[in-house]
Amino acid sequence: MTPAARPALYSDTIRERWRRPRFRGELAGATGVAEDVNPLCGDRVRMMVRVDDGSIAAARFAGDSCAICTASADVVAELVEGRAAPAAAALGAEDVLAVLQADIRPSRLRCLTLPISVLQQALGR
């Protein structure tokens, strides 16, 4: 296969979210915070949520991670804002992939799913 025929390694959305994440930062008045690492590479992600009346009023992330993980955390935060907590906790990899418009190789899937599982921890699941 020629290099041109292959899908780009990182979709434009991943690049854009990695360069300019919209939900990176601290969250004042957070009601749930969790942090975990990817045992594969040592990446660390913290997810912060403020739950107000059963739904997520705000979500932010912080951490030191690769492009896929950062983009995923950014999308996760965006997707869950405004959702009811149980619906937020049910967020899956396919939801994030749909936004990122990317094919993630099995070896990097954990980079994508780490923010999702950390969010679930932050929501006390």
Binding site: L9, C41, D43, D64, S65, C66, A67, R108, C111
Partner: peptide, 12 residues
């Protein structure tokens, strides 16, 4: 650049 991204880009 994160090391993972370095490796992935080099792998390309």
């Amino acid at each position: 650049l994160h090391p993972h991204d370095v490796a992935a880009l080099l792998d390309e």
